[in-house]
């Protein structure tokens, strides 16, 4: 067994990443194309980005989408973290199997089923469809992703600190906020970001559950994409890709730094 990477490993990584990134790169490059014909390169231009500023429908949709993504991921983070605690800390409770089923099933459930079932619920209880129904639907499916991310951190976590705090008479509620939460914070933050991008991204569930006046950005993009590739859509997509890339990189640098600091503090505490 040779150590390190064989040519086969290097080739498969390089080809794999090329496959993942080339389509996105081409899309970004062609958003700067001067020609309206998407496939003919006619020089560099930012005109499609300026055109976006005048597209009020698109800007409205972007605003609706951002608000839904922000508020739904906030609530989903709280609910998902609670669900993760319930799954990992509280042992057996009645109906635990059903609970874990309801956490895992939404992760793989085809979106058409989730979307249709939520819509029929809102109709059955006579809830006016629009911003709030999309928000509720997004909270429900994204909280399960948060729960899984936070749960994976909670199981690998040293419980001695929690136990020490509880033994010293710290109330459980305070123990959570003083000990547990700071330690699982990177997972909670990535859970929040995952929920945010899933909500930002969702077309199918939003299309089913929305009503008049709450058209989201993916719905607008989808209705234009069906008519063919246009440079404006390439420009919107490029902006979204840039936003997500910046946020993900900042977050990963921040959690890395927080992790390093925590390790340094732990070492310092050991030395004393």
């Amino acid at each position: 067994m040779k150590k390190g990477l064989s040519w086969f490993n290097v080739t498969s990584i390089v080809l794999g990443f090329a496959f993942l990134y080339i389509p996105i790169l081409l899309l970004v490059i062609y958003s700067f194309n001067a020609s309206r014909l998407v496939t003919v390169w006619a020089g560099f231009s930012t005109q499609w980005y300026w055109a976006l500023l005048e597209n009020e429908q698109l800007i409205d949709a972007a605003w609706v989408t951002l608000r839904i993504a922000f508020f739904s991921s906030l609530v989903a983070t709280v609910l998902g973290t609670m669900a993760a605690l319930a799954m990992t800390r509280y042992g057996r409770f009645p109906g635990r199997t059903l609970f874990s089923g309801m956490i895992y099933a939404p992760l793989v459930m085809p979106e058409v089923i989730t979307g249709l079932s939520m819509l029929l619920l809102f109709v059955a209880v006579n809830f006016d469809r629009g911003f709030w129904t999309v928000l509720l639907a997004h909270i429900t499916f994204t909280m399960c992703f948060v729960a899984v991310v936070v749960q994976s951190r909670l199981v690998t976590f040293d419980r001695a600190l929690e136990e020490a705090a509880l033994d010293l008479g710290c109330p459980p509620f305070k123990t959570f906020f003083k000990i547990t939460l700071p330690l699982i914070l990177p997972a909670v933050v990535s859970g929040f970001m995952l929920a945010f991008t899933l909500s930002l991204d969702d077309l199918v569930i939003a299309s089913f559950t929305t009503g008049p006046g709450a058209t989201t950005l993916p719905m607008r993009i989808y209705s234009q994409v069906r008519l063919g590739v246009t440079p404006e859509i390439n420009a919107v997509c490029t902006i979204l890709i840039a936003m997500v890339t910046v946020v993900v990189i900042i977050a990963s640098v921040m959690t890395k730094r927080a992790e390093n600091m925590r390790q340094a503090e732990e070492r310092a505490a050991m030395m004393q």
Partner: peptide
């Protein structure tokens, strides 16, 4: 490497499908 695999997953699913229309047409 792990980050590079996850990054495309964070960008919109719809965008990634759309990108292929321009390539395959």
């Amino acid at each position: 490497l792990l980050m590079l695999v996850i990054l495309p997953f964070w960008t919109s699913f719809l965008i990634r499908v759309y990108a292929w229309i321009g390539i395959l047409s």
